[in-house]
Amino acid sequence: MSAAGGTVSGQITGLADKCVDVADGNSASGTQVQLYDCNGTPAQQWTNPGDGTLRAFGKCLDVRHGSIADAADVQLYDCNGTPAQQWVITEAKDIVNPAADKCLDVRAYNSANRTPLQIWPCQGAANEKWNVSTGGTPSIPGTEPVPAPPGDGGSPDGFVVSEAQFNQMFPNRNSVYTYDGLRAALGAYSAFANSGNDTVKKREAAAFLANVSHETGGLLHIVEQNTANYPAYCDASQPYGCPAGQAAYYGRGPIQLSWNYNYKAAGDALGIDLLNNPGLVESDSSVAWKTGLWYWNTQGGPGSMTPHDAMANDAGFGQTIRSINGALECDGKNPAQVQSRVDSYVGFAQILGADPGGNLTC
């Protein structure tokens, strides 16, 4: 496939000059995406942040259930970085999902309002051709030229941690914990290390990496080391049970995701079936990092806020400790563990060239 470069900004028109539309202007995840008379409403305004996704209402154009089958519906869904949300617009005006190698298609060549959109083998037909409005210089999602790496000033996509800095932080890490895997996971939570000024961004990145370093022995361990605990993490009272096995839900990944209900919750949030496939957290670098970012950005744990909110709102590194393991470490319970986390944070902040701020302990 050939592709031209750029950012989508506005309507996407197709068969009968009608628009790609979010049904009834409903921004809820799972809402059908359809063909409809162009009307200029927000339901027909699509943008691309440069990561290969197409977005309306801040959510992503998504192939339902991650299917690659012919006639799989497309929908609006929370952005989660999965292949089901990656699209390339070609010079031939196809919108292609590379994972399925299929085109965005108007079902049954029907130009009536509310006709669902789907994926279908690319055939060059009129119901697979799209005209994309662009903002500024015409360009296409996912094909922008990547700038040269800026040394230790961050990554090409704006992440405040460069690969050299990451390697300096984790010289002995497990091979699963790759820098590319971390960067691939960032799209699942776009606010992570991307809120506030440059210092706030660097503090949050340092805080996350310091906590995961503590949890994993410097990213050395991908799984919990005490195998005797493995069968304990199945809460059989949950209606979905433990389909992968009694001993399948032990700690994995950078924040050691544990328990069947956490695998279920993280998987649902990320659009990945971790309840049935928990091993993905120890075999797929991007999935491993996404589970860590899921906890960091959405879970308060024993604390009163998420770790992301703690750093974005300047509550201090100590509140991230409380949200991750406060019941066992904070309020004088285990000061040595707290200090270990603080030492890592201060060191990582120094590598990133950021003042670590106050309120370091809990």
Rank of each mutant, 00 (worst) to 15 (best):
S133M: 04
P147D: 12
T134D: 05
T216I: 09
P147S: 09
P98T: 13
I140K: 02
V132T: 05
P98E: 12
P156Q: 07
Q123L: 14
N167F: 00
E215I: 12
I119Q: 13
G124C: 04
S190I: 08
V161T: 14
D157T: 15
K129S: 07
V200D: 11
A125S: 10
G187C: 12
A92V: 13
G187M: 05
A148F: 08
E204C: 06
A164W: 01
K202D: 06
A188K: 03
D157C: 10
K129I: 11
T216G: 01
G124N: 03
G154A: 05
Y109T: 10
Q168G: 02
I89K: 01
H221F: 09
N211K: 04
P98V: 13
F192G: 09
G154P: 12
T90V: 09
S190L: 11
P98Y: 04
T199K: 08
E163D: 08
G154R: 04
S175E: 14
G153H: 13
F166H: 04
V146G: 12
A92G: 15
C122N: 03
E204M: 02
D101W: 00
H214M: 03
G217N: 06
P156N: 10
A112C: 03
V96P: 02
V200H: 01
R114E: 13
L182C: 07
N127C: 09
C103T: 09
P138C: 00
I95E: 02
N110P: 15
A193Y: 13
E204W: 00
V200P: 09
Q225A: 15
G158H: 11
L104V: 06
V161N: 03
V176F: 00
S155E: 15
E204R: 03
P145S: 13
N110R: 14
G153Q: 13
C103P: 06
D152E: 09
K93C: 01
V132M: 02
A84R: 05
V106R: 09
D94F: 02
A210F: 00
G153R: 12
A148C: 05
S133V: 08
